[in-house]
Write a protein that binds this DNA or RNA. Structure first.
Lengths: 264, 264
DNA sequence: ACCCACAACT
DNA sequence: AGTTGTGGGT
C-alpha cells in the first residue's frame, strides 16, 4: 500500500512539466526514503534524477519498495487537472497495476480521482557516483534559462568555461558568435540574485543547447540552479526542490572537435 | 421598423461568442416580448435557445414580429468591432433585407454602423415543453467549465450523476479514468461559490464532452450555471443573463451502451 | 479585463 | 525558427 499526500500540489505539477518533454516513460521508485525517478531521455543522451524525500510529504506511507512504470505524458495530463492550490495524493494498492491521483480542492468541496494504468518498463538503474567537480557554478535559474534560450538562437552548442573571474557561455553559428560572461557576485542582501563560483581548476566544456533548454523547464521549481563541471564527466544541472529534494539533469560533454573539422 | 438599443453592448458580444461556434446560421426572432433565437447546432445534435427580454433594453421598438436570418460568424465579426463599453443599437427597416448594427462609444465621439445582409433560413421552431427534472444542479459556471475541459483531456463523454451528496462527473479514456465529485455547499456568505443540488430522484446520464465544452463558452455571461437533468430528457445547461433573460443549451443524453459493446 | 509568457504547430 | 493559440498572472 502506497499513499503519498502533498499539500503543495503545484510542486508535483511543476516536476512533471520539467521532465515530460525529456522522458516518455519512466519508473517511479517509492521507498521509505522517498519518491524518486531516474531515467534516460528518449534519445539516451541525457539523464534525469528526481528525489522527493518522504519528510517533504504531509503523509507518506510506503509499506514496501515499489517501482511504478508510468507514461509521463499521460501522468502530466492528469496532473494538469489538479488546481494549483489542490492537495495531491498518490495512491497504489499492493499488486495493483494502476495508480490513483487524488486532488482535493482547498475548500474540500471538490474531490477528484484519476486512475492510470501502470506499465512495465525495464530500466537499468545506474548508480551515479558522487564526484569531485572542477567547478561548481550557482546562479539564478531564470538567468541560466535566459542564457540558454538566447544562445540557441545563434548556435546549437554552448561552451561553458569557468575561471575564477566568472563563467562564460559561448556559442558560434552561421550568423555569428556570442559570449555571455557572468561574473561572480555575492550580493549579500539579495541571495536570490547571487552568482557563486567554486573553482578548483579552470574548466571549459561543450554541450548541446537542445538539452540545456530542456533542463531549464525545471526553472519554476527553484530560483537557483547549480551547474557542476569536470572535464570528462557529465555536467550536472541541479534544481533544489524546497524542503523535499532535487531534480538533477546529467549531460555528457561533446568532445571538442578540431577547429577545422574537414581536416583528414 | 425595428430598433433595439442596449447600453451594455458587451452583453451582446458575449452572447455571440457563446453561440457562434455551435451554430452557423440562425433566425433571430423579434416580437414585443423580446429578442430571441432558437437553433440547432450544425450537426443537429444540440439546441440553443436565447431570450433577451424587451424590458432589458433601454429602447425597444418592434412594430411587428419579424424573423431575421443571419450568419452568426459574420454577425460576430461585426460585433467584435464594438468596444466593450459601447452602446449597441440593432436596426432593421420593414421589408429590408439588411440589418444595421450601430455602436456608440461611451463618450459619443465615435459612432460606427455596420450593415449586414440577411439570409433566408428555414427553421422549424420547436416548442420546448416545460418539464419536471429529476435533479437540478446550480454551481459556479467557471468550475463547471474547468471540469468539462479537464475531463475532455481524458475521455470523450462525461457521465453526470446526481445524488443528494453531490454531483459526480466521470469519464474514461485510453489513458485511464477520472471522477470529479462536487459536494453540495451553500456558503451563505459567498453565494457566487455555492453548489446547490435540488434532487427528486437520483439520475445518471452520459453526454458528449465536445458539446458541453461548447456550452461553456457562455461562462462569461453568468457566474452561475444551472444543469437540469432527467432520464430520457435532454439536459438543459442554462446561463442566466442578468436582467434580460437566458441562454439555454439542450443536449440529448447518449444511450448507455452495454459494458461490452462488441457483444452481438 | 488586459497583458505576458509558454507551448504547440507550420 | 517563427508564428499562432492557449493558459496564467497582474
Amino acid at each position: 500500500m502506497l499513499e503519498l499526500r502533498l499539500v503543495q500540489g503545484s510542486l508535483m505539477k511543476k516536476v512533471m512539466e520539467s521532465i515530460k518533454d525529456l522522458v516518455n516513460d519512466a519508473n517511479f521508485d517509492c521507498s521509505a526514503t522517498g519518491f524518486s525517478l531516474q531515467a534516460m531521455d528518449s534519445s539516451h543522451v541525457a539523464l534525469v534524477a528526481l528525489l522527493l524525500r518522504s519528510e517533504g510529504f504531509e503523509h507518506y506511507r510506503c509499506d514496501r519498495n515499489i517501482s511504478m512504470g508510468m507514461n509521463l505524458n499521460n501522468m502530466s495530463k492528469m496532473l494538469k487537472c489538479a488546481g494549483n492550490d489542490d492537495i495531491i495524493t498518490i495512491k497504489a494498492d499492493d499488486g495493483s497495476d494502476t495508480v490513483t491521483f487524488m486532488f482535493e480542492s482547498p475548500t474540500q468541496d471538490k474531490i477528484s480521482d484519476f486512475e492510470m494504468k501502470l506499465m512495465d518498463i525495464d530500466s537499468e538503474h545506474l548508480g551515479i557516483p558522487e564526484a569531485e567537480y572542477h567547478a561548481i557554478v550557482r546562479m539564478p535559474s531564470a538567468e541560466f534559462a535566459r542564457i540558454c534560450k538566447d544562445l540557441s538562437s545563434i548556435g546549437d552548442t554552448v561552451v561553458i568555461s569557468v575561471t575564477k573571474e566568472g563563467v562564460k557561455f559561448s556559442t558560434r553559428g552561421d550568423i555569428g558568435t556570442a559570449n555571455i560572461v557572468c561574473r561572480q557576485n555575492t550580493t549579500v542582501d539579495k541571495p536570490e540574485e547571487a552568482t557563486i563560483i567554486e573553482m578548483n581548476e579552470p574548466v571549459s566544456l561543450t554541450f548541446a543547447l537542445r538539452y540545456m533548454n530542456s533542463f531549464t523547464k525545471a526553472t519554476p521549481l527553484s530560483s537557483m540552479v547549480t551547474i557542476s563541471l569536470s572535464s570528462e564527466l557529465p555536467v550536472v544541472v541541479e534544481y533544489k526542490i524546497a524542503e523535499m529534494g532535487y531534480i538533477r539533469f546529467y549531460l555528457a560533454p561533446k568532445i571538442e572537435e578540431d577547429e577545422d573539422e574537414t581536416r583528414p
